[in-house]
Simulated scan of single mutants.
Amino acid sequence: MKLRTLLLACGAALLANPLAAGLAHAETPAKLLFSAERQPSAGAPQSIGFYSNGCMAGAAELRPDGPNWQVMRLSRNRRYGQPAAVGLIQRLAGQAARAGIWPGLLVGDISQPRGGPMASGHASHQVGLDFDVWLRPMPSPRLTVEQRETYPFRSVLRKGTFSVDDRIWDDNYRDLIRLASEQPEVQRVFVNPGIKKKLCETAGRDRGWLSKVRPLYGHDEHFHVRLFCQPGSPGCKPQQAVGRGDGCDELDWWFDVALQPPPPGAKPPKPKPPLTLAGMPAACRPVLSAPDKGEAVAADSSSATPAGGGYADAYAPAAPQVPIPTSRPLR
């Protein structure tokens, strides 16, 4: 029996037991339900909800190995996304290699097979429109499956500082982040504030792409790419738009306030209770209960499986350019 089915059955048993009425509101954390799913759901690709509170139907899978990429930490099973996201990874990897910027991408987490909250790690990556790229070029020879489980992360900051380590960093790092930010599907690229500062210092006169590059805690070992909500996902909740400025004048707050240690004796923030299905979009419940994508294809003898394992949608052309409004969010 699937863990999901077992958890839901246990929940139903509790509700049917009068002695357990007090536990009726103690729903199973959604991260346990979604992380138990090993295959995408059947149906058309859709992002449901917001990047940090939602799920995904009909996901595409990024192959573990491609001409210019390798997926890391395969045991996590987080290499699923909207077809536009999977296609963008493939295209970005090829463009960077052909331009001599980067020999190959080491791709971190995208989303779980049905999206949703993860058992560990990210708060976002829930709707198949986020993915991580390690700030390490793909080595030669390529990494084995076993090596990809233990290959170390590497910060591009000098140890104990928020400044980029110039013994590691060169213009290729800047050019890869710029190439990602210039893709029309991309809404934001998250980097460490120290990396954003370095980009501001070395971008040159053409700075329009910097508006999408947003500083965020962490993100010194990888950068995080976020796509716009895609056509065909009416339930996808968009993020506030970025503005047209380069954002370099906002960095003082990060270094002077946000990155400073808390004052002595400050109480740590109270952890949030785990997200449950009750707090997620209603359309995520049927995503959990839907048959696996592979099962649905096998049951329909009239459906021909596309070449490449049934994920031909992942090679769809890029979405049209989405205009960026002039207003800039505060954070």
Rank of each mutant, 00 (worst) to 15 (best):
F50N: 12
N53E: 10
D65S: 13
A57E: 15
N53A: 12
F34H: 07
M72G: 06
A59T: 03
M72N: 09
N53P: 13
A60I: 00
G54P: 03
Q46A: 14
G49E: 01
S52M: 12
S41T: 12
S52K: 14
Y51V: 12
E61R: 15
G54F: 03
A42S: 15
M72S: 09
Q46S: 11
G66C: 04
G49V: 03
Q46H: 05
P40D: 06
A42E: 15
P67E: 15
I48A: 09
F50C: 14
F34C: 04
S41H: 09
A36R: 07
R73C: 04
E61Y: 03
E37L: 13
P64S: 10
Q70R: 08
A59H: 02
R38M: 09
S35N: 12
L62R: 00
E37Y: 02
M72E: 13
G49T: 00
A44V: 12
S35V: 07
W69I: 02
F34N: 04
R73V: 09
G66F: 04
P45D: 10
S52C: 14
Q46W: 00
F34T: 01
Q39P: 04
N68D: 14
Q46L: 05
M56W: 02
A44W: 06
G58I: 01
Q70S: 11
L33S: 11
R38F: 00
E37W: 08
G58P: 05
A42R: 15
C55F: 10
G58D: 09
G54A: 10
A59G: 07
G66T: 02
R38L: 07
Q39C: 09
D65K: 09
P67Y: 03
G49Q: 05
A60L: 02
R63M: 10
A44H: 08
I48P: 00
G66Y: 01
R73S: 07
E61M: 11
N53D: 15
